[in-house]
Design a protein around this nucleic acid. Structure first.
Lengths: 202, 202
DNA sequence: AGCCTGAAGTTGACGGTGTCAAGATCTATG
DNA sequence: CATAGATCTTGACACCGTCAACTTCAGGCT
């Protein structure tokens, strides 16, 4: 599962930071954010409760590091859609919507950490996290501009505002789903289809 | 501020439940959900740490009671819009959008409690809360059906899905705002205007 | 009137949390 | 080979939610 140390007999772990990160991520996805405690984490990795503090300043920094990894994966995943050459612009947009929601539905706890208030409301994001997250926000704007130029979306609307609203829609649908309020997984496809047909002016 | 007991000399408080509720609500709005602890609350009300347990089974029940009040206020506020007779359908819809976002922006912590994962993801909603919240979800569907009949929104789309997407959009914009990610208060009006012009097919 | 049941409020205690300080251990560099 | 610094440890503190047992008081029954 996680990167195991070569031998447990050693006083020093060898690769504790990576171990903590991967174990924390799996604890997050299986137990939720409220079930992730530093003490349980240290215990699971087989190390004393304060050992993690030599690799992360505090719990927030650990959470930011997890989110950081999440953004890297997500970004990679997203860009694969646009690399596919044999799709029309509308098909790509449709694929983007479906994949966005699918990512959130498949990784609810991670999505919540990446795009939730735990990190952002308290303005607790670390610099490395910002360095990965902000460009991916910006990318949303760039894509929107492209969609406007391709005639998928109204050109008379301000690109930034349009980007905020379209992303807001995806974000809102994702949240309704993963917070289990007013929508459940069986509605995903139809909701995405409805969203696409609302936005795309063809 | 809160309902003060007639005299502090009495052993029994007199109206502790109401005092707890109002003080908790004001602590929530001023300190955030993470700053609201039962011990601090009891202390502020001037009562021992376990006194609240005679009025609320646990912290969750207190939170649900706060959310319950929030829904009642919110519902009341929303219905005032539709009582105004001198507005066109489109104007009413526009007003609804603006008011929805304004409510979230004005009461970020309360909005988070009412529509956030703290209560709903853990399926921790009490029966009284559900009794108030579910109908207000249903009302969203009813309004959407009306908007379709009035020609504001495409009639060929399934009403339930359309309601989920339109509400998802408002919810998403609200969350982007109150979580301080990718949008701030100065964008509110323009974002609302963009959302309206995207949804209303005139 | 007086008792006495039960609601309301109290202190004490337990296990859990994040985090700091000080000491132990090992690794690697001069 | 020694020693400095990174790494890991135990101890301690201040919080938190919650249970159990005790005290106080108000209201209804005889």
């Amino acid at each position: 599962m996680s990167t195991a140390p070569p031998s447990k007999a050693t006083y020093h772990h060898g690769d504790l930071r990576a171990s903590l990160l991967s174990t924390a991520t799996s604890m997050l996805t299986s137990c939720g954010i409220e079930g992730l405690s530093l003490r349980k984490l240290a215990d699971q990795v087989g190390v004393s409760r304060t050992a993690p503090y030599h690799h992360f300043k505090d719990k927030n920094e650990l959470l930011c590091a997890i989110a950081e990894q999440g953004f890297e994966n997500w970004q990679q995943q997203t860009q694969q859609i646009f690399a596919q050459g044999d799709l029309t612009h509308k098909q790509k947009f449709r694929q983007f919507v479906f994949d966005y929601i699918k990512y959130a539905a498949d990784n609810p706890e991670l999505y919540d950490l990446m795009f939730g208030r735990t990190i952002w409301k308290q303005k607790a994001a670390t610099e490395p996290l910002k360095a990965v997250a902000y460009p991916s926000f910006q990318r949303q704007v760039d894509m929107t501009r492209l969609w406007q130029q391709q005639g998928l979306m109204p050109q008379h609307l301000d690109t930034l505002r349009l980007a905020q609203v379209t992303w807001g829609t995806l974000h809102g649908i994702a949240r309704l789903l993963i917070d289990g309020i007013y929508a459940d997984a069986s509605h995903i496809d139809e909701m995405c289809e409805t969203a696409v047909s609302l936005f795309v002016t063809d």
